[in-house]
């Protein structure tokens, strides 16, 4: 089979590499998938804004040659909304971890969804606060271990996709860092969607999460993703107990032609002007 070579360097800021991610981290797979998806969608670099919060995933914007903003913890969506509203022609992508998007940034998450603003949010969901050394995350499975839940988590985790859909997001999908080809496809599709799109990506942090949960190596964590991921169509035929400990992947919700916030705003503006 002929090996296809993709020129990642065209999109990377080589002077900012090497990245800070640990060897075996899933974030690199997502970074490459994101670059391929942007390339596939044919966006000009000058028209893409990537904003992120705080955490390992949120270091991504520094490595890529777009308009990039590494903002405050949990609040990248607020910056993204300001940019999108002021310059709607720009393609705005927000990068966030699970703690960033759903704990400290939970309020911004649901309100961005409620507005259905044309922003793509990519959640790097590794069940942990990796950068600070493995504390409990709002998506951490019940019973799993972290430095702040040393006897097992008693919290009910957020289902990122269910929350996004309930709050008003109009494109919702899930994939994993194991499914690299699917990732590219979903990121591309999410960015093509007009409205608030949320892609929940289950990724691996073997250092901060895996070590405490019997998955010391990246391979074990990738295997976990492979085994736990159930395609949404296959899931339809499974009994609820068969889904125990597993998660659905695929495009889980796709509502087309819903009013989009920035378009609605400028529509009002035009109608006021006409009066």
């Amino acid at each position: 089979m002929e090996k296809t070579k993709f020129d990642y360097e065209k999109y990377l800021r080589k002077n900012t590499l090497p990245h800070i991610w640990c060897p075996g981290c899933g974030d690199g797979i997502i970074l490459k998938s994101l670059i391929r998806a942007i390339h596939k969608n044919g966006y000009a670099k000058d028209d893409v804004v990537i904003a992120s919060g705080i955490g390992c995933a949120s270091r991504l914007p520094g490595y890529v040659d777009f308009n990039t903003i590494h903002t405050t913890h949990g609040r990248a969506l607020t910056f993204s909304i300001g940019i999108k509203m002021f310059k709607p022609r720009l393609k705005v992508i927000t990068i966030s971890g699970d703690g960033d998007a759903l704990a400290i940034g939970g309020n911004h998450f649901i309100h961005a969804a409620r507005r259905n603003i044309d922003i793509t949010l990519i959640v790097f969901n590794n069940y942990t606060y990796g950068m600070t050394g493995g504390q409990a995350s709002p998506t951490q499975p019940k019973g799993s271990f972290s430095t702040t839940t040393p006897f097992g988590s008693i919290d009910q985790p957020f289902d990122v996709c269910a929350l996004a859909q309930a709050a008003g997001a109009t494109w919702v999908g899930r994939s994993t860092s194991y499914h690299a080809v699917q990732l590219e496809k979903f990121i591309s599709e999410a960015m093509n969607h007009k409205g608030f799109s949320v892609l929940d990506i289950i990724t691996n942090c073997h250092i901060s999460y895996g070590r405490r949960n019997k998955m010391k190596s990246p391979a074990e964590m990738i295997k976990y993703q492979k085994e736990r991921a159930v395609n949404v169509r296959a899931a339809e035929n499974l009994a609820p107990e068969a889904m125990e400990g597993k998660f659905k992947t695929g495009v889980l919700y796709n509502k087309k032609d819903a009013p989009e916030f920035s378009e609605e705003y400028y529509r009002v503006l035009e109608s006021v002007k006409a009066k």
Binding site: T78, F79, S80, I81, M85, F86
Partner: peptide, 26 residues
């Protein structure tokens, strides 16, 4: 709105300044 600008009520005070900073960068 009448002069073609943007005014949004955000979900909280932090978000309000976040949106201002995003817009200012743009």
């Amino acid at each position: 709105v009448r002069i073609g600008g943007v005014c949004i009520q955000m979900e909280d005070e932090i978000a309000a300044l976040g949106a201002v900073l995003g817009a200012s960068l743009a």
